[in-house]
Design a protein around this nucleic acid. Structure first.
Lengths: 93, 93
DNA sequence: CAGTATCCAGACCGATACTG
DNA sequence: CAGTATCGGTCTGGATACTG
């Protein structure tokens, strides 16, 4: 599962954006240079399937959808943070 | 870095084998069905570059090389463990 | 605006042969 | 035994067009 999530170069970017409070697909796409709708949707679907994010649909026109972290998702990215921190410590010596 | 390590389907297998006490390239290759020397060496080099494992060379004929976790490597795989555990908990409900 | 379908270049990875 | 080089098929993901 980790492999499946992190195995795409865009996953971490998208997770970072969601964490920054960007929840809508359109905004996510615009905020990440080079990210296409296809890849974004692939990632979002994967995150959904693994229970990392949940999908909120608003009955509006035009349609409005938001993706938010689940409790699991928050714990998950926190662990990724720890790996990052660990690595920074190592590089410092 | 996480992406680069986990982004290959073999990485986690190789890390698991090393943890099981299999340290020599030949043994690693034989212990993991479908793993070729090329891919194994790519992974080992990446682990080396990121400081996850260290390379120990013995002055012998035939040549003997062993790969062992560094302190960082051990912490790293421990965090991967936690992600795995987290995921198991989620699946249970 | 959200999401899907298609097409295609390029990366990856497995098989194999080879060097030290 | 450890490690590198090469070649070729597969699969990913980027561009684009399209539907609801």
């Amino acid at each position: 599962m980790v492999e499946s999530i992190v195995g795409c170069k865009w996953s971490l970017h998208v997770l970072a954006r969601i964490r920054q409070g960007i929840h809508r697909p359109g905004a996510l796409r615009r905020s990440t240079r080079g990210l296409t709708t296809k890849v974004l949707n692939e990632r979002l679907n994967k995150f959904l399937r693994f229970g990392i994010v949940e999908r909120r649909v608003f009955a509006q026109v035009p349609p409005r959808v938001e993706y938010h972290f689940t409790a699991f998702g928050r714990k998950f990215i926190r662990l990724l943070d720890e790996i990052e921190k660990l690595q920074r410590d190592v590089r410092r010596g």
